[in-house]
Amino acid sequence: MDEHLKTELRKQGIVATTLQELYNWGRKNSLWPLNFGLACCAIEMIAASMARYDMARFGAEVFRPSPRQADLMIVAGTVTKKMAPQVVRLYNQMAEPKYVISMGACAISGGPFKQGYNVLKGIDRYIPVDVYIPGCPPRPEALIDALMTLQKLIDKQSLTGADRPRHLQAEAPSEFIVPRFGAHDLEPPQNPEVWDAPLVNISLAGTDDAGKH
């Protein structure tokens, strides 16, 4: 339906809507995050949910202690290799539709601990991430911005067609490989279904021309 026509009708007191619009409106305004934090980012997440920043304004105030009742996983903090299987297992236990916000430098890439022996280089190696927030740690405003970005993403989803969201595709996976503790590293070190190493041209790195190409 034409967006202009819709607003014109609304001015006349006639509400025209679609099932898709209602469905997405309901989902995007009741995102219940999973109540867990891994490091200092969790403190900012708590601050964002409290009165001063008040995530409740966006319908995301109900932090659930059980993955069965949560829609949104906020990976807030450093994911150690010892913790990674538990994070993936929690994600697998969440019911569809489910979303992931990767909060802070550590959850994105390992951050300041990237070369550490016990730090996972980003949670997106094992589970699909919808929104990334850079920062160390990101401020509560940044988390709210990520939440609004996620709401916009949900709002754009169409219920039919090839690009419909994962939970409406029967054959799409909703559970992902839980890594096992190996003798030297996690096995597998990443889930190839979820993550491919982005192509980076490192041949020029370290030279004077590095920034020119």
Partner: peptide
């Protein structure tokens, strides 16, 4: 580290896993 881990990461001759793909 976890119980099944075999190396000792703070030793000078520790060889870390080759996860430098990105």
């Amino acid at each position: 580290m976890w119980d099944g881990f075999q190396d000792h990461p703070m030793r000078k001759d520790y060889v870390e896993p080759d996860d430098y793909e990105y």
